[in-house]
Simulated assay, not measured.
Amino acid sequence: MITHRLLHPELLAGLAAAGHGSRILVADALYPHSTGAPATAARVHLNLRPGLVAARDVLEVVADTVHIEAAVYMADANGDESEPVREYRAMLGPHRHSGGREVAWAGLERTEFYTACRSPDVCVLVATGETRPYANLLLTIGVP
């Protein structure tokens, strides 16, 4: 019996197949899930209804499962961090999620973010029910 907090079979398989430098996309409900990542990326649909499952809940469990080296967010229309991104940054502070190191953060405007998410190193797209705007986050797996 699995005793870890992450129980979702497809997400476990996707994270287990990923390695250092692989990228995980936590996508909000408005993201183009079918075309916004390479065809080879596993798609994990957790978008049951608007607001369920929230992106922050996915981030919490993913961060408890793998070390996160870097995070890239979709900047809002003004080029700033959205409320969800500020929340994510607080969640991924310099502690165990990054092996005790600071997570490197970067923001990209919308079309640049889409391009980054279509790169071949994106191995998992997690579709959430997150409805807050600009709540997408592209994570790079690091090493302990």
Score class of each variant (00 low, 15 high):
78 N>L: 07
12 L>Q: 04
53 V>G: 01
139 L>N: 11
109 E>A: 05
59 L>T: 03
143 V>W: 01
120 P>A: 15
54 A>K: 15
70 A>T: 01
38 P>V: 12
73 Y>P: 04
36 G>R: 13
99 G>D: 01
22 S>M: 02
88 Y>S: 03
13 A>I: 04
44 V>R: 09
120 P>I: 08
68 I>K: 04
136 N>D: 15
17 A>M: 02
94 P>R: 13
62 V>A: 02
13 A>M: 09
56 R>S: 12
38 P>A: 11
33 H>P: 00
87 E>A: 14
31 Y>M: 07
68 I>D: 00
116 A>H: 12
9 P>T: 10
12 L>F: 04
114 Y>R: 02
105 W>A: 04
117 C>N: 02
50 P>C: 14
35 T>G: 01
69 E>M: 05
7 L>Q: 00
144 P>I: 04
96 R>Y: 11
8 H>I: 06
38 P>K: 11
133 P>I: 13
116 A>P: 05
71 A>E: 08
63 A>G: 11
107 G>N: 11
68 I>Q: 01
32 P>L: 14
95 H>W: 14
124 V>G: 05
122 V>E: 02
60 E>N: 07
69 E>Q: 10
67 H>R: 09
122 V>I: 13
109 E>G: 01
31 Y>V: 11
56 R>W: 00
55 A>M: 10
122 V>G: 07
84 P>A: 10
108 L>N: 00
132 R>P: 08
99 G>R: 00
20 H>K: 11
42 A>R: 15
114 Y>D: 11
25 L>K: 06
64 D>Y: 05
21 G>I: 10
104 A>C: 02
48 L>D: 10
68 I>C: 01
68 I>P: 00
65 T>K: 03
126 V>C: 00
119 S>A: 15
27 A>L: 13
72 V>T: 15
49 R>I: 09
79 G>D: 05
81 E>T: 05
29 A>C: 12
125 L>M: 11
60 E>G: 08
95 H>I: 02
30 L>C: 15
82 S>H: 08
6 L>K: 00
87 E>H: 04
120 P>D: 14
42 A>Y: 06
53 V>I: 14
5 R>E: 07
127 A>T: 09
30 L>E: 12
116 A>Y: 08
143 V>K: 12
19 G>H: 06
70 A>K: 08
64 D>A: 15
45 H>Y: 13
88 Y>P: 01
134 Y>R: 10
9 P>Y: 13
80 D>R: 13
14 G>R: 06
22 S>C: 03
11 L>E: 04
103 V>C: 12
93 G>A: 14
9 P>V: 14
68 I>T: 07
4 H>N: 06
57 D>M: 05
111 T>P: 00
118 R>H: 08
89 R>V: 12
41 A>N: 07
87 E>L: 10
109 E>V: 10
26 V>A: 06
42 A>T: 15
101 R>K: 09
49 R>K: 15
89 R>Y: 09
46 L>W: 08
90 A>L: 13
126 V>Y: 05
